[in-house]
Simulated assay, not measured.
Amino acid sequence: MAKTLRILTWNINSVRLRQGLLKDVVDKLAPDVVCLQETKCPDDLFPLDLPKVLGMDHVLFRGMKGYNGVAVFSKTPMRRHEDTQDWVGKEDCRHLAVELDLPGGPLVIHNFYVPAGGDIPDTELNPKFAHKLDFVAAARDHFAKTPKLTRAVLVGDLNIAPLEHDVWSHKQLLKIVSHTPVETALLTEWQDTCWHDGLRHFVPADQKLYTWWSYRAKDWEAANKGRRLDHVWVTHDLKGALTRHEILKEARGWTQASDHVPVLVELAL
């Protein structure tokens, strides 16, 4: 009988601030693996009691003070994978790769937090945007070296909504960072190296799909001006293993919510 593996990804926007919300998410969605981004927590202050609270015995993390940071919790033993990278020469804790030993063989999960890129989509005027494009191009080039990669999953806040219906208005957001043509082209090239879109596997490309709603909206739910910034990709050998997905939209309305919502994908391995 196939074993199911439930992988959750969430930009938590501070792991210490939202420990209670994380427990609520885990209780509601029952994941086997939790990948967090923007933990905003240096390693020496990471809440080491949290794995027990979540019912997960294993945790790996890379963090720094005040911003960025990634973490992975797992019910299954795991180890840091050698393919964990510091991209474009910056040690800014934006990537953690882990390897799980599963009945069908090892599975590697890449947890990414891609730079947001600031507000101005111009590399000369905005160094943050240049950094973002360099980061995505470097990731694309890295995975292009392994086009036949198997038994791998890539998740995280990739900070780009690549498709027309990944944003509330394609035309109005073409000059807005996260949906500019240069960004969407780069992300598509990265995905095309060896990955299959695990969310669009379930939701056709002509349907709206969001995972993020801005804090700036007075009533985020009524305005519904969302974007799909959070992604789950699987290698092509795992396409047939995808069994279900869930986007916990209600979490955006919780007290002290992150502006991103948890995303879950289930695989039958």
Rank of each mutant, 00 (worst) to 15 (best):
W220H: 12
L209E: 08
T180Q: 08
C194K: 09
Q191D: 00
E183D: 09
Q207S: 09
E221R: 15
T180E: 01
R200I: 08
W195T: 02
V167A: 02
R227H: 00
T180C: 05
G226L: 13
V177G: 04
D197C: 07
D192Q: 15
L174Q: 14
L199E: 12
A222C: 00
H170S: 07
Y215V: 01
K239I: 14
H231Y: 12
V167E: 01
D192C: 03
V182L: 13
V203S: 00
G226A: 13
Y215D: 03
L163D: 12
D197Q: 11
L187W: 15
Q172M: 08
H179V: 04
D237Q: 11
W233C: 10
C194S: 15
H179S: 02
K225N: 10
K208V: 10
H170D: 03
D192E: 15
Q172K: 14
W212M: 05
G198V: 13
K239T: 14
A185L: 10
R228H: 02
A222W: 05
Y215W: 11
L173E: 06
D237C: 04
D197Y: 12
H236F: 07
R200W: 13
E164V: 13
H170T: 04
N224R: 14
G198S: 12
E164Y: 03
R200V: 08
T184A: 02
R216G: 01
V167G: 00
V167T: 08
H201R: 07
L209W: 10
T211C: 02
L173W: 10
L186P: 08
W220Y: 14
L238E: 08
L187N: 05
